[in-house]
Design a protein around this nucleic acid. Structure first.
Length: 403
RNA sequence: GGGAGUGUGCCCGAGUGGACAAAGGGAUCAGACUGUAAAUCUGACGGCGUACGCCUACGGUGGUUCGAAUCCACCCGCUCCCA
């Protein structure tokens, strides 16, 4: 092999391994890249029940994109058939069964969002529904398929093992999920499969199944779970500690600015393509002011989902509102009846407080102002004018519109 | 089928007849400070009333009691042990 090609491979490996939680195996990946005469097929399974994508999901999608950028092909599997089994990776039992229409709908939303990360040009992306082949399997096929794995092997899986140890139910059909997911790999002839840590077992079973079908086992790249904005729990919608990839640039920027400093390095590594050396510089408090580093992080991420000018604008807006303490450029309007009104009512009507008590509290905590004039008397009456700015706390603004 | 537990505010969790709108922590919100919606500190944190107050709330229903989150009965949910 030529010196150049070898350097090239080294460079690619460095990029592809970055941020990974585990790789099975690194050597195989190197070899596969070296030997490749055509684009590798990179499989990623999507769950048709969760169409709202946030930065946590984007970690794996971003890795998929890296493969695409290196000339490989993303193969997205929509688990419309497997979704009906119920993956035991979680914990509890039945998830709701989705209708074909719902699955279609979810898949559509998913692509709209995933398209912000992935390269959707036709040569780079292949989309497959696994009902295409799973619905056709006969009983005999299934018996053959399940004969490839032993019960002991299945019980290696943590969630099976612990449930069994705790005398909890493990249903037979749950064993099918990993095996069937592995069969997906056979059908699409996956060279590589990507997944989050919770998918480790399933992805690895895929290797065994492929071997059993005389295919080269796929290489498995496991990506870590992204920590949420609170710096503690994993990012998830239900925890509210997430950045949605459809969030507005300003929200995205602001939310990222709110992460603990200690989380920056992790975010840089998993959510941006900045070179490792650059990240080291940015994260080093001696070399870069933490605020600047975080702003750079936020800008890079916003740029990924929008563009450079949107990122600049979001950064300017943030400085404007929080550093210079000025009013934002865009302020949502709040409709208010004309005439004199108690300040408590005004705050409640603007939707800035859920109850009079909360409004009263905000006022007595010096949080409320109109056109910059603080109002601290909870009993004050005001006579709002069109265009005045009602502000509550640091972040909530409303432009008064009389109705 | 038998037995033992357990269910508290957005979440976790203390409380085992009155001093309980209910300790503590987390989350959230506000203020101060700052480097930012970081960190730290302070405060607020069921609803209504300016306050004494009233209402709603401790799985559900009913009961005992002057008085119940706390005791009793039944019901519902969850967990564990035995079969």
């Amino acid at each position: 092999m030529s010196q150049e090609k070898q350097t090239d491979i080294d460079g690619r490996m460095k990029l592809l391994l970055r941020g990974t939680e585990a790789v099975y195996t690194t050597d195989e990946l190197t070899r596969r890249l070296e030997e490749a005469t055509k684009p590798l097929r990179i499989k990623y399974g999507m769950d048709p029940t969760a169409p709202d994508i946030h930065l946590g999901h984007s970690v794996v999608l971003g890795k998929l994109r890296q493969f695409q950028d290196l000339g490989h092909k993303a193969v997205l599997i929509i688990g419309d058939y497997t979704a009906r089994i119920g993956d035991p990776s979680g914990q509890n039992t039945a998830r709701p069964t989705l209708s074909p229409e719902q699955i279609q709908e979810n898949a559509k939303t998913y692509f709209q969002q995933a398209g912000k990360v992935l390269d959707t040009s036709s040569g780079k992306l292949e989309i497959r529904y696994n009902s295409e082949w799973l619905a056709k399997l006969t009983m005999m096929d299934i018996i053959h398929l399940t004969a490839k794995k032993t019960v002991a092997q299945m019980l290696q899986r943590e969630s099976f093992k612990t449930r069994l140890a705790a005398d909890q139910d493990v249903f037979l059909h749950e064993f099918l999920y990993p095996v069937v997911q592995g069969y997906d790999s056979v059908v699409v002839e996956a060279d590589v499969e990507l997944g989050g840590t919770d998918q480790t077992f399933n992805c690895l079973v895929g290797r065994d199944i492929q071997r059993a079908y005389d295919q080269r086992p796929q290489i498995v790249l496991i990506m870590p779970l992204l920590v949420g904005l609170d710096g503690v729990e994993k990012m998830s919608k239900s925890k509210g500690n997430y950045v949605g990839i459809t969030d507005t640039p300003n929200d995205m920027f602001g939310k990222i600015m709110s992460i603990p400093d200690t989380l920056m390095e992790n975010y840089f590594t998993l959510l941006t393509d900045l070179p490792a050396e650059r990240i080291t510089e940015l994260v080093d408090g001696e070399k870069t002011h933490p605020r600047e580093a975080k702003a750079a992080l936020a800008k890079t991420i916003v740029e990924r989902y929008y563009d450079k000018s949107a990122a600049e604008a979001a950064a300017d807006e943030f400085d404007r509102v929080f550093s210079s303490k000025q009013t934002p450029t865009e302020i949502p309007e709040i409709a208010v009846p004309a005439g004199t009104i108690g300040i408590i009512d005004l705050v409640v009507q603007a939707g800035f407080a859920k109850s009079n008590g909360e409004a009263r509290r905000l006022i007595s905590q010096n949080a409320v102002s109109i056109d910059g004039d603080k109002i601290t008397d909870t009993e004050a009456d005001v006579n709002p004018q069109n265009g005045q700015i009602l502000r509550v706390g640091k972040r909530r603004f409303g432009k008064i519109v009389l109705k």
